[in-house]
């Protein structure tokens, strides 16, 4: 198999694009996909300070490196979940990655907030993945706003976005469907949220991470087996295999023709957000979700 651009032996075959690239040409392709996404959705410019959420996985570290290479002002934020072994390993990868490349990094420890995930899991009798996501998003937003960052970037890739859109569609969740996309504006107490990898597949970010020598955290979260997203990704991989390009078509079609309709409905009948009575974060209830989790953990601690 030859590289489409320079005809040397290819290293990365991309059936969704009916093409293959050598190492150097793939890195050019990857860089252009990110740069085009940032420009097309006006995510941020080189004048913005961008906070990049770093889990230690291939996607977030690849995003950080690519944005840095493109000359954007990036700072990493790692939320240490406090899960024995798993969190220590992920944090070590993030710290090593940033130190080796001279990239700025902040770390937020959930244990110091009284919200280490094992404790939350024991205290709250709901699926821990959704609570963990809620807590992480809470601190991403808080650190971004308090630190004066003008955009919060996450490493969500095409597979993540399609799986999430699929899950929201299965439930016809109007609120989430009106609010999903690669660039959400800063409003109502939320920092601007951007996903510059949204057109790149998990395979492509994995190839980028390998070709750029990124040592990333590879083990699955010990609490994630059975997560519905994994099953949805498998379904979509089956569909993409039979019909290459389905993922991009589904997602881009939604952005163009689906989201505006759901967003309009949501503006008419959706919740009004007000500051949380305890921490000030935007919420549709008196207390935000994280403060409610905090209360549950405190009650659990008192026995």
């Amino acid at each position: 198999m030859k590289c489409r651009r320079c005809k040397v032996p290819a290293e990365v075959a991309l059936p969704s694009h009916n093409t293959a690239f050598c190492r150097d040409c793939f890195l050019v392709y990857f860089s252009r996909q990110v740069e085009n996404a940032v420009r097309r959705h006006a995510m941020f410019t080189r004048k913005d300070r961008v906070l990049v959420a770093l889990s230690g996985g291939k996607d977030s570290l690849s995003l950080m490196l690519q944005l840095s290479d493109l000359g954007f002002d990036v700072t990493g934020l790692h939320v240490d979940l406090g899960i024995p072994k798993s969190s220590e390993s992920a944090r070590a990868k993030v710290e090593g990655f940033c130190a080796d490349r001279g990239l700025k990094l902040q770390v937020k420890e959930l244990a110091a907030e009284g919200l280490a995930i094992p404790l939350v899991k024991a205290a709250v009798h709901r699926p821990v993945c959704s609570i963990c996501g809620k807590i992480k998003r809470h601190f991403f937003n808080k650190v971004a706003l308090e630190g004066g960052f003008t955009a919060l970037a996450t490493g969500h890739n095409l597979d993540d976005e399609v799986a999430r859109l699929f899950a929201n569609t299965l439930r016809w969740d109007q609120g989430y469907l009106g609010d999903q996309g690669p660039c959400l504006p800063d409003e109502s107490g939320f920092a601007r949220k951007v996903k510059p990898l949204y057109r790149l597949s998990e395979f492509e970010t994995a190839a980028f991470a390998f070709l750029r020598g990124i040592e990333h955290h590879k083990d699955a979260c010990p609490y994630s087996p059975g997560a519905s997203f994994t099953g949805h990704k498998r379904l979509w991989n089956d569909l993409e295999w039979k019909s290459p390009g389905s993922k991009v078509s589904f997602y881009e079609g939604f952005l163009e023709r689906g989201r505006p309709a759901f967003a309009a409905q949501e503006r008419e009948s959706g919740f009004t957000l007000t500051p949380c009575a305890k921490c000030g974060s935007p919420t549709s209830q008196e207390l935000c979700g994280v403060c409610r989790v905090r209360l549950a953990v405190e009650a659990f601690g008192k026995g």
């Binding site: 998990e202 699955a220 994630s224």
Partner: peptide, 8 residues
């Protein structure tokens, strides 16, 4: 062989 499908 590095399987690329993540759980997130």
């Amino acid at each position: 062989v590095r399987v690329v499908v993540s759980a997130g």
